[in-house]
Design a protein around this nucleic acid. Structure first.
Lengths: 246, 246
DNA sequence: GAGTGGTCTAGACCACTGT
DNA sequence: CAGTGGTCTAGACCACTCT
């Protein structure tokens, strides 16, 4: 382990930050799969030859970033999108009465094609790389409420189109995780108010040109590597998007 | 200080959490004003008769919640809305090119009246309490981009209307802080896509019925006490609302 | 009972700021 | 220089889980 301090060492990154970095690397490399237990604090402390408190701080930060989950008496586990709590983590729409209801999905189309310039830029792909494009309708309480377009790199999710065809699960992130070992850890969204296109108006049963909330999301895995570009256009007549500012 | 552990004590809130609670209480009571330095860790540790590490953890959490700011070698200071970094903390609109540009404000109206039922509920006021209602236009890059309605309790901001008339500053939160000693620490926003009213279309220079992004914000001070209800309706033709999901 | 994470203590040294 | 916060160590005890 690199020295934390000392006149000969120009690098002065705190020890706990170095430990955290190494652990995230090992997580990224897939050394521990989602849901699995990590070695204990004392094991890490011995392995890296540092004090348990230092390891503790590193893992605490990973827990803050929701990369791992800790349980007293049980251990530290790699966070998994498949837990109930995590399923709604990236879903911010609420009914006007304040209730959160996860939507069902009705597939519209799924096809592969070459990435255009914007897609390649957003997903950091070579120009002309193959992408899988999914269109689907999101249904809340029986009514179609949003039209969603999802773009992912074929290379990152090989054979997804052939594998699932029109049988996509409601939530994609647990699916990405279990089928392709890719875990979404963070996302950035850009919101705008837009006019519904004729096609959107029809499938969402709103007036032509009705206002829709457009949510443009880029989802990232470990190390801020982009995984999925998703554009959702929502009817907000009976729902709202909740944002908390701290 | 209450014991942290022990068979006779059913309460087992961690010591650091109790310390944090007391410090926030003292902050709320106005013992230290925004920008002021707090006593040092060791002083608190002696005062509360706990280890410095425990005080440290309590203050670290307050720093995470952005109630205080810490500077190595200088001290710990009450966070202030008047710093450059804090001014844009609750402003989430960006130009399409990604730049963040704080808006100017053009006052439209400012008057006092009695709170209706919804206003009283949102701001936790007695029905019929007096509120101050401000309407203003927010201007970015010379063009009007949003129409904003702000509702605050007159009792919390006594004489605000008479005091400032039509001379409101661009940013209200620093003004609340310096003039009334009220610091906004957190906010909750509900977003929807709506149609511009005839009046909004006129002042924002958009087509009648054009889609606008409605941001309905409730701003809170210490202890989640609501301070301000604000509804902003934005033209998102050249701007977007940015949200980060972790 | 052994093993886990969570809290608390006490002390050391470091980096940085002011005087 | 003394005083501040930031890091690291070492050890103690606690609450909880599993065997």
């Amino acid at each position: 382990m690199e020295m934390a301090y000392g006149p000969d060492q120009p690098v002065m990154r705190p020890l706990f930050a170095q430990i955290e970095e190494r652990l995230v690397e090992r997580l990224t490399a897939g050394e521990w799969k989602p849901g699995m237990a990590l070695p204990s604090e004392v094991e890490f402390a011995e392995y890296y030859n540092v004090s348990p408190g230092t390891v503790r701080k590193a893992i605490a930060r990973m827990a803050d970033n929701q990369l791992v989950v800790r349980f007293r008496g049980k251990g530290t586990f790699v966070a998994s999108q498949t837990t109930e709590r995590e399923r709604s983590r990236f879903f911010h729409m609420y009914r006007d009465d304040g209730a959160k209801e996860l939507p069902e999905s009705r597939p519209v189309s799924c096809r592969n094609r070459l990435a255009d310039r914007e897609e390649a830029a957003r997903l950091v792909l070579a120009l002309g790389a193959e992408v899988t494009v999914i269109e689907r309708l999101r249904v809340i309480g029986g009514a179609p409420r949003a039209f969603e377009t999802i773009i992912i790199a074929e290379r990152m999710f090989p054979g997804l189109r052939e594998q699932v065809g029109r049988q996509l699960p409601n939530e994609l992130y647990p699916f990405y995780e279990t089928q392709f070992g890719i875990r979404v850890v963070r996302a950035e969204e850009k919101l705008k108010a837009v006019r519904a296109s004729a096609r959107e108006a029809e499938v969402l049963a709103v007036a032509d040109g009705a206002p829709l909330l457009e949510i443009d999301r880029l989802a990232m895995t470990y190390g801020d590597v982009p995984v999925e570009w998703r554009c959702t256009r929502c009817d907000t007549a009976a729902h709202f998007y909740r944002s908390e500012l701290r």
